[in-house]
Design a protein around this nucleic acid. Structure first.
Lengths: 201, 201
DNA sequence: GGGCATCTTTCAACCGTTCAGTTAAACCAA
DNA sequence: TTGGTTTAACTGAACGGTTGAAAGATGCCC
């Protein structure tokens, strides 16, 4: 019999792949090998299921991010690590796809209980950048803009594989589109490019 | 009596706000003040409606982008203009929200007929960057990565308003989140930061 | 212009399917 | 036997899509 955590794993995958509106409770129950009523008994309705997934996902991400702050002291290393943690899904967490959908959706299905996690995530970056500016390493920048660049570029790359491959197939000059770089490497490159843009020269 | 174009305007807004799976054909018909059967007679089913919107949207975006190439000669100006055109929705086109959803969705509802437009969009940036490198202005870079940064950061900012405001409300240290910068200004800042990262110093 | 036929456009009502959520019975361990 | 847990079957609402008949529009011959 699958544990509640197993069910959440399956549900996260379905929500990530299909979105909230596209996800089917029947499909989640079937894929998790539990009866739909069991799912309702153990977790609750579709909203509760979604909230449970988000909570688990964000709690892990925030914990990793705040641990990262303790691990690195150098401001540039922290920016690199921020990008790395952002795209690092330990169990397949599907963080990027779910975040992207939620933002495009205007947070219509985002429960209030998740907002503090998001606030702390931005807080980590805000502190990192402020420290860098205080040390004279970075130009003064809007941390929220940096957040958009990092999160946007990383999550977009993390999720655009299927479309990229289709576009590559019809593009004559396809050298770059076919690269298939691992997301960790892309996150690194994005962080590096960003650092080039904010370093006080 | 609303024209077919009027219907497409309304449908684009609904698809942008609710996503493909979340959009209701009945709702589109009602909001456009036409009977549902009229919509089916004039345009076709949900897929055809979605394809018509995407075609109109991408054709306009690609045309603007290729016109931009003729307007600007300087490589840096072209990168700035690329970002500006990306976020510029002349009629409220909802380009960003629909693109973001489509990517997060793995392009499941993206018809093949749209792929050439996407290819040309990337082509414009590829050419811009290649010219810049040839002129010794830019470091050699992966244009697709640049594309991810520009599209990711711009579209994310263009659509994250509702969530940003909710997070700002619960964040004590809210100075940056409350900025409410116009998207054109943000696109400019992102382009500028990016240029800082790729300029051959 | 008047009469008539043909094509286009509109509409309310309807159909089969799918969905989230419920029920009541069955199961099982203590 | 009791109380927590699981199940197949069910429900009512909502969905995408269809229909057939009525209302306009268009053209054409006299």
């Amino acid at each position: 019999m699958p544990s509640t955590d197993d069910i959440l794993d399956v549900a996260a995958a379905v929500f990530a792949e299909m979105g909230y509106a596209g996800a089917r409770v029947d499909e989640i129950a079937k894929a998790a090998n539990v009866n739909k009523a069991t799912l309702y008994y153990r977790i609750g309705d579709k909203d509760a299921l979604y909230e449970a997934i988000l909570k688990r996902m964000f709690a892990a991400k925030v914990a990793n991010m705040e641990h990262m702050l303790k691990t690195f002291d150098d401001a540039e290393d922290r920016v690199r690590a921020f990008a790395a943690v952002l795209v690092d899904d330990e169990h397949p967490e599907h963080f990027s796809a779910i975040m992207l959908r939620e933002i495009a959706n205007g947070g219509r299905n985002l429960p209030d209980s998740i907002l503090p996690f998001m606030s702390r995530l931005i807080g980590v970056l805000e502190q990192t950048l402020a420290d860098g500016v205080a040390q004279g390493r970075f130009k003064p920048v809007n941390p929220f803009m940096i957040h958009m660049i990092l999160v946007g570029a990383c999550t977009l790359y993390a999720t655009n594989g299927p479309i990229r491959r289709r576009v590559a197939k019809i593009t004559a000059h396809d050298s770059w589109l076919n690269a298939e770089l691992p997301i960790s490497q892309v996150a690194r490159a994005i962080a590096e490019m960003l650092l080039g843009g904010i370093r006080s020269s």
